[in-house]
């Protein structure tokens, strides 16, 4: 379970807090979508959860431990239990799908073994298993830069799954994908959420996707939580308020499924 207690983040050289004294408790079966304008603090919030960003004040509590009290070694152990996927996929270039997915195990193995690329037959099978799960088994030996955006994100998901994580974090994972591909990626994320009992927290710009897949929506505005509730409670008025949008841009979104 992750609990966020009054975290504030102020980036150096900025006047306004990126996050302003936020409290949030994530439940175990949550599939949370975080909504908000660009610059509302969504990425910062996600990155605080696995310690990629250290809050200026406040605490992130994971299994009763405050992340800020951990040394680097302990923080690594926390991170390996949290998978993360990214907008730009962040795959290691010039390596194959299989090689990239295997990096998901790095947190559990010695750096020397990682460097030499020594994997046991069991570990290889595990990697192939997750590649199968995301539907890329035929592309296993292909270099990642030769894949489409959707396929790259599937590699990202497979890498995260190989960590056998309890939490899956997504920092705008579909923001550079087309609508159809985004939908399929969210479908896969939902499937993995249910199958592996993964607590899932994802930043997303597409409100329609969020309402369709999330079990809980959190909306951020200017570094503060302005909404936290069930997807169908996120009304048109809430949408207009969150995004400072004009009424007419509600139109594509009100066509709910």
């Amino acid at each position: 379970m992750i609990e966020i207690r009054k975290i504030t983040v102020l980036y150096p050289g900025m006047k306004e807090n990126a996050l302003n004294s936020i409290n949030l408790t994530l439940q175990n079966d949550d599939f949370i979508c975080i909504l908000g304008k660009s610059g509302a603090g969504k990425s910062t919030l996600i990155r605080c959860l696995n310690g990629l960003q250290t809050p200026t004040s406040g605490e992130v509590i994971w299994d009763g431990l405050s992340l800020s009290s951990l040394n680097e070694e302990q923080l690594r152990k926390v991170r390996r239990e949290m998978g993360m996927i990214f907008q730009h996929f962040n795959l290691v270039p010039r390596l194959t799908v299989l090689q990239n997915v295997l990096t998901g195990m790095f947190g559990y193995r010695s750096s020397f073994k990682n460097l030499m690329g020594w994997f046991t037959a069991g570990e290889m099978d595990q990697a192939k298993q997750v590649i199968q799960e995301v539907g890329l088994i035929d592309f296993m030996d292909r270099r990642v830069e030769h894949l489409s955006g959707g396929q790259k994100q599937r590699v990202g998901i497979a890498r995260a799954l190989l960590q056998q994580p309890r939490v899956l974090l997504g920092d705008e994972p579909v923001a550079s994908l087309d609508p159809g591909t985004s939908d399929r990626i969210f479908n896969l994320l939902q499937e993995m959420h249910l199958k592996h009992n993964l607590q899932t927290v994802i930043n997303v710009h597409d409100v329609q996707l969020a309402k369709r897949y999330a079990t809980r929506i959190v909306a951020l505005k200017d570094g503060e939580i302005v909404f936290d509730g069930k997807p169908d409670e996120f009304t048109d008025e809430m949408y207009v308020y969150t995004y400072d949008s004009f009424g007419y841009s509600r139109m594509p979104y009100t066509v709910t499924t």
Partner: peptide
């Protein structure tokens, strides 16, 4: 990006840098 991803999987930070940057 890749360096951040390698940190996120829990690799040691020197190794995360080496492994993500050298192939690039």
């Amino acid at each position: 990006g890749p360096q951040e991803a390698m940190k996120a999987v829990g690799a040691k930070s020197w190794f995360a840098s080496l492994f993500s940057i050298l192939p690039q």
